[in-house]
Design a protein around this nucleic acid. Structure first.
Lengths: 345, 345
DNA sequence: TAAATTTGCGTGTACGCACACGTTTTTATA
DNA sequence: TATAAAAACGTGTGCGTACACGCAAATTTA
């Protein structure tokens, strides 16, 4: 591969002129510019990124807006690990990451932390726009400042994000439904369990439920689908009561829990030895892994949480440094896990 | 982060001396060496890989031993794509790749091509040791020349490979069995279909079958498992006869094809409209993707063929350039695909 | 004690690119 | 035609590391 020096020699100009042509800077006559461009075409010159990074030697700062991570069983533990890995890999490129953590169950916390973020300065933002409207309002300021941003985990239509990295929630719900149809019989019923503390609309979870239902709707099975909302995760009493009521009133065999909180239900099932019940849930935190290994949970859908953080950070970096424009939507594989393959990630 | 220059200034020596300490070269008095090491400890110096690569500016050559790739529906098409992607990414690091292709169904071809490879010189080898014994004999020469090598796709126990990147075949078979048990009933039978042209022992496929059988063995179901070997893929007549015989003689509902050749069986099933049959196979070539989309195939197990090539190349590169020692076994996710999630890869 | 050798360390250049600055050439203006 | 201004191009330095080379001091040998 030719270097700038080589091209310069071939064109009988200095490397400075070649440099100007490459970067489309002014100060080159049309004639020489075309000559150099032709030589570059013919010899296939490509910039040496290593040398480029070394020469630029700038500092970059990426802001991350995501939920608080308290323990390794939190869903957001893995994305954060991914971000950390990417930033370690890029440390030599003088990249640094600033975290802005909010409470995912508290709308005001999201607003406040996002506002705080906007007070600072940085080169790019990685965020999970969990609260759609509140995010949308604030992204305008990033657009104004021409700061690129990438979404992970939650999708927000109509924004100027350079990329979304995450799962196709609707289709993951449909996959869950297919598996459920294998686990139960046509005379059985299904219960969808939503676990949440407030009434805020969570797009990802609703999309999963839509996908799940649509699978059964298009197939016209006699299977009945019930729903229940479990508020206040800490209060096991209320949860038990609610679940017990639903399970006794109907012929339920399949339980679909469209979030990582499947363990809340699984613990109940395990405790009451309801082994005939089939559970499908999401995500691979420690608790869920334990519950799938002992087959209390039958299937887990993994959304590559680690990869979301890792790839999101990398995407931003490549965009800033190398001007690599990523695809707008990067739907990750919908990974299906059972006892048999849960150890391989 | 401090640079060599910084450390040199702090230690009041030249950068040359610091360089010698970092690389554990001779020519530094014990006293100075310890002083510099202490300063490095305290200030947390880390080598700048970018500058390092630029300064080294060596050329590296990786040899790849793998089956011939003729069309995009070949299994080995994807690993090759992965290798190409990795080598593109590393082109700036002056890495080049030399392919040595053999006929995967011909033992002598494997031997000849491997011997030819050994005549050349390179810095590392990426290979699929499909023929275990013949590979083992020849790897000795790589060991002698201290050339690092990585296995992809097929595992070979007791070799000095720095890493294996691929799936755990046995467990993937067990996963297939679990799904099969969901697809069929206890009164149904299962047929395992081996597709091959010669009698050479193919470890990967046998391991998958072992895993599959062991699942049913440990559960003591009344399900009967039959087997059939289909030779000569091109000869559809023979295949039809053999399959027809097996399917009429037994109450078979589930078909397990432990290779990417599942399409051979699926085409038969599609043609004869045997919609009640359930098929599980491997790998995502174009044909298989088509067959899973129209639900002729029920489940495909993907072994991340692209990633195997990509990661294998990267692993070797990082080992050569950055002395990064990889884990000996990198078992990839056992990805399960159905009509619902096959588009997300 | 002088000469020869070894040890310890500094210097300079290369790697390929970016960019500020300086120099030459061309064009416009008086 | 002289001069100013603008355009076109060259030069030099820095980014952080690797390594060959070379010099000086310390050590060994005669």
């Amino acid at each position: 591969m030719k270097t700038i020096k080589d091209i310069a020699a071939l064109a009988k100009v200095s490397i400075g002129t070649v440099d100007r042509v490459i970067h489309n800077r002014s100060g080159v006559s049309k004639k020489t510019k075309e000559r150099i461009e032709k030589i570059i075409q013919e010899h296939g010159f490509q910039i040496n990124k290593t040398a480029r990074i070394l020469a630029l030697n700038k500092k970059y700062n990426i802001a991350v807006l995501m939920p608080t991570v308290e323990s390794s069983s939190d869903f957001w533990y893995l994305p954060k690990k991914g971000i950390e890995k990417a930033s370690e890999e890029f440390e030599m490129h003088r990249i640094s990451v600033n975290y802005f953590h909010f409470d995912p169950l508290n709308l005001n916390s999201f607003k406040d932390v996002f506002d705080k973020l906007l007070e600072n300065s940085f080169n790019a933002v990685l965020l999970a726009p969990i609260f759609l409207n509140e995010a949308k309002e604030r992204l305008i300021y990033l657009d104004q400042r021409k700061i690129p941003y990438v979404f992970i985990n939650a999708e927000l239509e109509g924004a100027n994000n350079i990329s979304y990295i995450g799962q196709h929630s609707f289709d993951s719900g449909a996959l869950a439904a297919k598996l459920m149809s294998l686990l139960i019989n046509t005379e059985d019923d299904i219960l969808i369990v939503k676990v949440r503390r407030d009434n805020v609309h969570h797009s990802t979870i609703e999309d999963r439920i839509s996908g799940f239902k649509s699978y059964f709707n298009t197939r016209k099975t006699p299977i009945q689908i019930h729903e229940v909302i479990l508020p206040k995760i800490k209060d096991q009493e209320t949860i038990n009561t609610l679940l017990h009521k639903k399970l006794t009133n109907h012929q339920i065999k399949g339980l679909f829990i469209p979030s990582s909180k499947v363990s809340v239900v699984a613990n109940y099932v395990e405790e009451h030895k309801l082994k005939h019940l089939k559970l499908i849930g999401y995500d691979l935190n420690e608790e869920n892994v334990h519950l799938i290994k002992n087959e209390t949970i039958d299937f887990l859908i993994d959304q590559d949480a680690f990869f979301q953080g890792y790839e999101g950070t990398k995407t931003l970096f490549n965009f800033i440094i190398n001007n690599v424009v990523p695809p707008k939507n990067r739907y990750l594989p919908i990974k299906l896990l059972t006892k048999e393959n849960v150890k391989y990630l």
